[in-house]
Nucleic acid binder design. Structure first.
Lengths: 227, 227
DNA sequence: TAGATTGTTAATCGATTAACAATC
DNA sequence: TAGATTGTTAATCGATTAACAATC
């Protein structure tokens, strides 16, 4: 069964159209969907699933099965007709496409309930994200352990970013504190900020802010429930 | 200044094309974006902003300003040329369009770190969602207060759903416990499930599951950072 | 073989955007 | 008035989907 075993390349087969290629950036939509598939596949693997069909992936992601096959086919022939896709092989293919095979380090701000929930969750770890530093301004929390990590004072941010090669800052702090931490992160050279507060953050154009918004998703789901 | 003050109607001006109308369902994209605008506007209002331009909304939502104006123009002329949109008026317009002006009740499962973070956050409350019941299976947690709400045993789920008219169930529980709670929610007639665990939930087609996936969003952001 | 599911085409549909007159 | 920003058009681009031959 060589197909499933061989080392895959991003440009395996001749790509057909726009969304594909080696140096070619993925479109926003494709990148979003691939990330989504990856999450489901990771969980399916945990549940001992070895093979998965585009139909099953569709059930979990709400993406049309044809589109799923189309998304993959741009990068190679990953599936087996009549059988489906090998979960393990597909995971490493997508990781390769998204260039997220490696480890990426995160700094977490806020050691309250949300911060502790994030630090102790598998969700980030499963995708190669590691919380290597936790910061809080509350002196009583500094020095305490959250999981395997010690809570530090924000003044250590700069050196930690350099020392640990931190690429993402996650804000699990009150809304009023968020902007000032964002400023510090920007100054320390962090380019991706994940904002769990409600603050509307002001950052330079080269920095990406992603604001988590469960309520937005809920409003959206509710609309389709009510209509 | 009557324009900003008059009571708005969903079918104010003659709608031009597809995505619009009274009984007409919004397309997925439009509904998602409107929810997004609503979140930003709510926060802008808190910060004392009275007027906002499509350009500013674009900065915070990463949606093209032309598209924002287009999204609104399908439902009426909400803005003032040279000035922008009145924040208050726009909020109530969008609420009307999304039909989420009222209160909606939520049941929360899991009184751990994540559950407590959710229960004490403004994020849901700001959009009319109220956590009216918290459930946990841990006997030591039952009877404790989280915010203003008392933690109950899951056996009370059924009666609470009826009594409190609960439309959304939020799962802040370990992955292994999620499916069985989802089954209970389905049986109790809840049609929207918000899943913070990693479980791939199996539910009947009339039930909507939204799985929260911060790691997916992070993978996605990282891709564009790395390329 | 028979059944299942992929890979791919071709056609459609909706999202996106630049541009600009209207107007506050 | 001058500057700013909306509302709207028209053109383009990418996403979506049904359908089906290929093949495991």
């Amino acid at each position: 069964m060589t197909t499933g075993e061989r080392v895959p390349t991003a440009v395996d087969s001749a790509p057909r159209d726009g969304a594909v290629g080696s140096g070619q950036r993925l479109s926003l939509g494709v990148a979003a969907r691939l990330s989504r598939y990856l999450q489901v596949l990771t969980q399916a693997k945990k549940m001992g699933k070895e093979t998965i069909s585009s139909r099953e992936l569709s059930d979990y992601t709400h993406v049309n099965p044809t589109q799923i096959r189309r998304d993959f086919s741009g990068f190679g022939k990953f599936g087996k007709r009549g059988v489906g896709y090998n979960v393990d092989a597909l995971v490493s293919q997508i990781r390769k496409i998204l260039r997220t095979s490696g480890q990426h380090n995160i700094a977490l701000f806020g050691a309250g309930h949300l911060g502790q929930a994030i630090a102790s969750s598998d969700i980030f770890a499963d995708h190669g994200f590691r919380v290597v530093a936790i910061f809080d301004t509350d002196k009583r929390k500094i020095g305490q352990k959250v999981g395997a990590t010690t809570v530090r004072h924000s003044s250590e941010l700069r050196s930690m970013v350099e020392f640990e090669d931190i690429v993402v800052g996650v804000l699990a702090v009150p809304t009023v504190a968020a902007q000032s931490i964002a400023d510090d992160l920007v100054e320390a050279g962090v380019k991706i900020i994940f904002n769990y507060s409600e603050a509307l953050l002001q950052v330079p154009p080269e920095v990406t802010v992603h604001t988590s918004s469960p309520a937005v998703d809920l409003l959206y789901a509710l609309y389709f429930y009510l209509t």
